[in-house]
Design a protein around this nucleic acid. Structure first.
Lengths: 223, 223
DNA sequence: CGAATAGTTGAGTAGTCTCAAAACAGGTGG
DNA sequence: CCACCTGTTTTGAGACTACTCAACTATTCG
């Protein structure tokens, strides 16, 4: 059961009426490029992304920009923790999200071992994504970064072995996320196309033509 | 003694009948460069670093190496989550760590709200470090990366405003962590010294001579 | 002392960034 | 329907940074 489904069940189940009442989540929409002010979420600090993507965006002193983390559908994010962060939470796509009360969330964790484990493994998953992202950023070339990004997209959208992947993000945001300039990213796309590893009708959609080769490239094997 | 031997000793020991239903942790030492095999920790998967540092090390296909995450003193790491990771856990310094049973850990979380909140904020802290690390890797130059690393060391060793920081890690590991080659890192040190931002008697110790300037540099402000 | 490991320095190369301009939508109003 | 605007993506030329490979120095340890 996904965490989201669990929460929904929890709040509607009569079995829990004996314990503390859990409030229904409020569903919210934010348009693209909205900055989420963490302080504004003080009363409902837990945010579960149900559609779109939220990025943690950072700006260096001279204007260089980075997106360090991206939260996609199903990712849970506790805004209380991000008020201390150096960046700001920005909707890099139109977003819908459910908001939860912090106390409710903690109550649910205490009441249900299942939920607690789910929540903990969710956090661990986020941590692993972050670690993998550091690997991608640290020593990979532009094309390798792009190849890695395509696989990350596929994995996080749970597309399995599907060969058509929607990137969904704007070029600027992909570039910010992968630590590249838009121009370099664009050149990387051209190279992958020229190498016949990918193909794309639409700017947003990528068809993987040679998955093994693309995988090798993403893993830094010199072909 | 091997890791498995430690764990076997724990399993057969009688001394764990503490007053509460939570078993006493076992304290273990690992020498530098030991690789921690996650499977060997199956019975006591929760590892709390009490001394030294554990790194999550990744190797690209052609030999390029990276350390994506570092766990220092006080950091909690659940080895169950890292068996899925692309990298391996390596003691990049001599390490001592307490091991906990997974069920005990979950019980402690349920029994103590205090503990649960602490654990959750610990995970959040790790996540923020990871995010900040991505920012450091993404678009910063070599000297900026080094400046950032010095501040990260100070912060994570809880040295407050102290101007003398022990890096403790080997140059190779710092380079792997910051996504640089050792040579480039060495040149970055030289540059910071020449700029009179830092000073060092010992290779391991860094005296910050001009904190504001170093901070600005770390934040990407062109001076 | 000599071997081995860790760290520094130097010269040339490859790759990314910068800046500038051109191509390409998508939407607006005449 | 077309010209126009705005924002995004692509392409090109030159500068600059970090990498590679190599030699050299320092330190540790048998």
């Amino acid at each position: 059961m996904t965490q989201l489904a669990y929460i929904d069940e929890y709040k509607t189940a009569e079995a829990h009426s004996s314990s503390v009442r859990v409030n229904a989540p409020t569903l919210n929409s934010f348009e693209q490029d909205t900055v989420l002010d963490c302080d504004a979420f003080r009363n409902l600090p837990i945010l579960v992304v149900t559609k779109g993507a939220v990025g943690l965006q950072h700006m260096l002193g001279d204007g260089r920009q980075t997106i360090s983390v991206i939260f996609f559908e199903g990712d849970v994010l506790d805004t209380r923790h991000f008020s201390k962060a150096s960046g700001k939470l920005v909707c890099i796509l139109p977003v819908t999200a459910s908001l939860y009360n912090g106390d409710d969330f903690e109550t649910m964790q205490r009441d249900s071992t299942q939920f607690q484990i789910e929540q903990s493994s969710n956090q661990a998953r986020q941590h692993l994504y972050a670690a993998q992202h550091s690997v991608d950023l640290a020593r990979k070339s532009a094309v390798e970064k792009l190849a890695s990004f395509i696989f990350e997209c596929r994995k996080r959208q749970q597309l399995g072995r599907q060969l058509t992947v929607c990137l969904r993000l704007r070029r600027t945001d992909i570039a910010d996320y992968m630590g590249l300039r838009v121009e370099t990213l664009s050149r990387a796309f051209s190279k992958l196309r020229k190498m016949q590893f990918i193909d794309s009708d639409d700017a947003d959609e990528v068809h993987i033509l040679n998955e093994p080769a693309l995988r090798q490239l993403a893993n830094g094997k010199t072909l």
